[in-house]
């Protein structure tokens, strides 16, 4: 017991020291950013120095954010021994890795599986979430706050905690090793998420429009379908996209509930991509596969940039 307390204290001390060192290292960068607005056209030596620091921060952020993906593309275009020579700039343009990935039937199959599963999950979740979020955002009833908290709690669930029970359920339903097993299990996080985000969006719609509709004789269902849905479609796109990304990236359930190579989703396929022998990891094809599944996502995210940021923050922060 004393030994345990001692090691705990020691580790706490380590952690404190770690935080202190990190803060010290980061502080100059913070300072450069914080004072950037005040500095303006400061031409003195100090001003110049902090300006350079500011741009250093900006460049570092971009570099660190982009480099790994850039390097994956670089690697995916190299084969043979070229792949094992470290290079920072593109040296070869060889599409054989892509050919081998797309040539093998199972990877294309995995992509199709992923698209089907993620799309179905999202459509199903949105369908249930639209009506539910109307009730949660617009109708006063007792226990509403508690219900919202419960829904949020479900989305925070450790997925491992339901794994064995879900396994039993899926087996009982006879959908093990089919896409439906994943569609069902993904509902556990897509549904609470979509309900949550749509509720925050729905709350922001003006009350008087709904009241005007009530006076006009609209039932709750008509309010949703004829008045709110047309106003909410941007929010629906955002929420759907975020839920789609979540389902597309899921790994644990996909790993557990599928066995056949033809039933796998993309993340499992990439994780289990193996070469001719156990020891040899096929880095080239792995990077090619990674690039193939990531590029569409990145394009989507960049196109819907503003909406995604709004959606993420609707789920998180509420001033």
């Amino acid at each position: 017991m004393i030994e345990f307390a001692g090691s705990l204290l020691l580790n706490l001390a380590y952690f404190a020291a770690f935080l202190a060192v990190t803060s010290l290292v980061v502080f100059p960068f913070y300072y450069a950013v914080l004072s950037s607005a005040d500095r303006g056209e400061d031409r003195t030596g100090a001003g110049l120095f902090w300006n350079i620091m500011f741009w250093l921060v900006v460049v570092l952020i971009c570099l660190i954010a982009i480099f790994p993906f850039y390097y994956a593309i670089l690697t995916s275009l190299e084969t043979g021994t070229a792949i094992f020579r470290v290079n920072y700039l593109p040296e070869s343009f060889d599409l054989r890795n892509y050919e081998s990935v797309l040539g093998g039937r199972s990877f294309v199959r995995s992509v199709l599986n992923s698209v089907f599963i993620a799309a179905t999950t999202v459509i199903f979740a949105l369908f249930l979430a639209v009506t539910a979020s109307y009730a949660l955002a617009r109708v006063r009833f007792r226990g509403r706050g508690l219900l919202l908290m419960t829904i949020l709690a479900v989305s925070m669930f450790p997925q491992i905690a339901v794994l064995s029970g879900l396994f039993e359920l899926i087996n009982w339903l006879g959908i093990y090793n089919t896409p439906w097993a994943l569609i069902l299990s993904y509902t556990i996080f897509t549904l609470p998420f979509t309900v949550w985000v749509l509720t925050t969006f729905m709350r922001d719609l003006p009350v008087e429009i709904e009241e005007a509709a009530i006076v006009d004789g609209a039932t709750p269902w008509v309010i949703i379908s004829k008045v709110f849905l047309p106003l909410l479609w941007p929010a629906l796109v955002t929420t759907g996209l975020l839920a789609f990304i979540g389902a597309w990236n899921e790994f644990l359930f996909a790993l557990t509930f599928t066995v056949d190579e033809t039933k796998r989703t993309v993340p499992v396929a990439i994780a289990l991509l193996s070469g001719a022998s156990e020891q040899e990891i096929p880095w080239g094809p792995i990077m090619a596969a990674s690039v193939i599944v990531t590029v569409p996502l990145i394009v989507l995210v960049l196109v819907f940039q503003r909406k995604i940021v709004a959606g993420l923050t609707a789920g998180g922060v509420k001033g």
Partner: peptide
Amino acid sequence: VIPSKRGIAMVFQSYALYPH
């Protein structure tokens, strides 16, 4: 009786027109 069955019409402060 629900509002639409009372034979009323209402004009709101913010107009409350359906934007779409």
